[in-house]
Amino acid sequence: MTFIRSLLFFSILFVLTPPYSLLAILARPLPARVRYRVIGFWTHMVMWALYWVVGLRHRVIGRENLPQGKAVVLCKHQSAWETLALQVILPPVAFVFKRELLRIPFFGWGLGCMPMIAIDRGAGKDALSQVEEQGARLLDLGFWVTVFPEGTRMPPGQTRRYKIGGARLAEVTGAPVIPIAHNAGDFWKRNAFLKQAGEITVSIGPAIDTRGLTAEQINRQAQEWIESEMRRLFPHHYENAPVPAAA
């Protein structure tokens, strides 16, 4: 049954994505917020298919922690699911993602038309500057800049040192940081065809007031909350697993 559901889900993606990529190209001249809503309808349809076809649901803890105004989001990264779900759970978001994704036919074309930040991960300080400059502009436009500080998808129970780009953006702009933990990797594994039915838990932490804090302090607070929350909610993944030091 899992195989059939997953096959049907990918069939829906195959039908939806090419025409929506063309719509995204046509929508490119529109204002950023309008373009986001037009192209983002694809995400809502994909989430609908995950719910009704795959049987993959989610619940959110801590919605009351979402502040008014701008924010930088630092989120655990385990699968492609959170890149979709956060667009539904949060106010308009702008992701920081690796530039290579733009090369994917149809999907990458549509992604390139969204108000996002595509970076060269090997560019070092230039990539950090790009996140700061473009991120500040997107925050002013009303988008919540969303960063996966681990830099890549990590299997459940594993983590790596948090990179500082998102925290640096928060330090420069004074925007609060919203830490988010979840277990999407239990149901949608990295590069896996099979999508498991079940319920993903998303936990939104209290906003971190970044005023007067350095990027290192912001990054450390976010990591401590996320990794502690992961161990609280999903302890079976973290037996004898140490918490890595923040960058």
Results as ranks from 00 to 15, higher is better:
Leu30His: 06
His44Cys: 12
Pro19Asp: 07
Ser6Ile: 12
Thr43Tyr: 07
Arg28Cys: 09
Arg28Ile: 06
Leu13Arg: 06
Leu86Gly: 09
Arg59Gly: 10
Trp52Lys: 10
Arg33Ala: 11
Ala80Thr: 13
Met47Glu: 13
Ala32Ser: 10
Leu7Cys: 12
Gln68Cys: 05
Leu26Met: 12
Ser6Tyr: 06
Leu7Met: 14
Arg35Asn: 08
Ile61Thr: 12
Gly69Asn: 00
Thr17Tyr: 05
Leu8Ile: 13
Gly69Met: 00
Leu7Trp: 11
Pro31Lys: 04
Gly62Arg: 03
Leu23Asp: 07
Leu26Arg: 08
Ala27Thr: 00
Leu16His: 01
Ala80Gly: 12
Leu8Gly: 12
Leu66Lys: 02
Leu23Asn: 13
Leu86Trp: 14
Pro29Glu: 03
Pro18Cys: 03
Pro91Arg: 03
Phe10Arg: 12
Leu23Thr: 07
Arg33Glu: 06
Phe14Gly: 15
Arg37Met: 08
Leu30Asn: 09
Ile12Val: 13
Gln68Met: 08
Trp48Phe: 14
Glu82Asn: 00
Pro19Leu: 06
Thr43Phe: 09
Thr83Leu: 05
Ser6Cys: 06
Ala24Thr: 07
Pro67Phe: 03
Gln87Asn: 15
Ile25Cys: 15
Leu84Gly: 01
Leu13His: 08
Pro18Glu: 05
Gln87Glu: 12
Tyr36Gly: 00
Trp42Thr: 08
Leu84Gln: 09
Ile89Met: 07
Ala71Glu: 00
Ala24Glu: 02
Leu7Glu: 10
Val88Phe: 09
Gly55Pro: 06
Trp52Cys: 10
Leu86Asn: 13
Leu26Lys: 10
Leu30Ala: 15
Arg59Leu: 12
Cys75Tyr: 04
Ile61Val: 14
Tyr51Arg: 14
Leu16Val: 07
Arg37Ala: 14
Gln68Thr: 12
Val53Ala: 11
Gly69Lys: 03
Val72Met: 03
Pro18Asn: 04
Glu82Gly: 03
Val73Ile: 15
Ala27Tyr: 02
Phe10Met: 10
Ala24Asn: 05
Trp81Leu: 01
Pro29Arg: 03
Leu26Trp: 11
Leu50Tyr: 06
Gly40Cys: 05
Arg37Ile: 06
Leu22Trp: 14
Pro29Val: 04
Ala80Phe: 11
Leu50Ile: 05
Ser21Ala: 08
Glu82His: 02
Leu50Ser: 05
Thr83Phe: 01
Val38Ile: 14
Val54Gly: 11
Glu82Met: 02
Trp48Pro: 09
Met45Phe: 11
Trp42Tyr: 08
Val46Glu: 10
Ser79Thr: 01
Val54Phe: 04
